[in-house]
Write a protein that binds this DNA or RNA. Sequence first.
DNA 1: ACAAATTTTTAGGCAAGGCTAAGTTTGTGT
DNA 2: ACACAAACTTAGCCTTGCCTAAAAATTTGT
Lengths: 218, 218
Amino acid sequence: MTRSEENYIKTIFHIGRQGQEAVSTNSIAEQMETKPSSVTDMVKKLSDKNLVNYKRYQGVSLTDLGTKVALGVIRKHRLWEVFLVEKLDFSWDEVHEVAEQLEHIKSDKLIDRLDRLLNYPKYDPHGDPIPDKDGGFEERDKKLLSEVAVGEGGVCVGVKDSSASFLKFLDKNNIALGQFIQVLEMEEFDGSLVIGIGDSTRQISHQIAANLYVKIKE
Amino acid sequence: MTRSEENYIKTIFHIGRQGQEAVSTNSIAEQMETKPSSVTDMVKKLSDKNLVNYKRYQGVSLTDLGTKVALGVIRKHRLWEVFLVEKLDFSWDEVHEVAEQLEHIKSDKLIDRLDRLLNYPKYDPHGDPIPDKDGGFEERDKKLLSEVAVGEGGVCVGVKDSSASFLKFLDKNNIALGQFIQVLEMEEFDGSLVIGIGDSTRQISHQIAANLYVKIKE
DNA sequence: ACAAATTTTTAGGCAAGGCTAAGTTTGTGT
DNA sequence: ACACAAACTTAGCCTTGCCTAAAAATTTGT
């Protein structure tokens, strides 16, 4: 598997998660900042290698083999992210691009040992689940903060958007994984929320709330 | 810098260390398991980028800039080797090929933090010196075991050949860095040695002795 | 249902990095 | 000194992965 093939597979997996069905050429191209014609080329190659199901004009989906490959790459990416944060004191907005490089290192032993060094973590620094060696992972049951009823609250367990700018915003506002967030008020007009974190309260926009996952206390 | 360019630079540096002068196209090709014609192509490109001095038919040598690049890659390679051995319990014969991949990861922050995590090591698992951020490094004063006088001895500080087969041989014979080795006898006929390690003695060939570095006790 | 808009594919090219085969240049032996 | 071997370069071609422009298929609007 070349680096490029791995990146395509990973992208197809990520897009596929949102909408289940066949993934469009255009969406892949957009996500990867490349052109649709390049996608077509690569998709044919992946199809020849039995990594994707592909029929002209009908979009693409991962085969079982392709899914396995995708989960392998994602496992590596997320383990490296944990390493960067836990062992090298990177902040959660700095890890992505380095992990994009590290995820392509080929060595099973390396990744198994890394897993051990990190104590077999189940989630990465953004709260996303880390697949195990066989591709299995536990998706936490979580809710977007924007969908939590007024008066309710939960522990922050993840972010939907993990762009550096969003993560930096959260840092600035002392919002971090593991923190308890309570929804105190919700403004009908724009969907903005007043939330309580620890002893203080804040006003956050709907956009922010729609990118924060919390786990509701049962 | 592409991965390939970095590999050429690194190879030119390593060959240049042995013989000082301009490095031949053929020796680069041989070392890199590629063809001389490919080397010529790449060398031209490196010359355009001011990384090497090159005149047709006259061999090639690194410029100051090229040397800096080489030391940077070597620093990364050796730090990763230390990481693999110290943190992930790789043995010293397993680290090379993984480090070959890791050395091309681009992130200054990553490498500085890795250096810190490992406590600023000065030598890699084979006893080779690790350049610091500015490219400076301390070459230990050491001697090949084959050049040590009978009756003398020293602490094993490095290997000249770091191929997996040689390193495994050393493991099998309980020879490791840090161990005190004494030359007890030397066979004139084939240059083989009888050496003492700890409480036991062993017979080793000249070939082995000529690939082991020791530091003579002053 | 059918023309227009959109999406996707094909055709043809480009740069990187490699190869083989065919020249050049340099070095060597006598 | 000069012929020949060895070393090196050039020329031309290949694959990967990407691009633009143009053609084909699909979807959409009415």
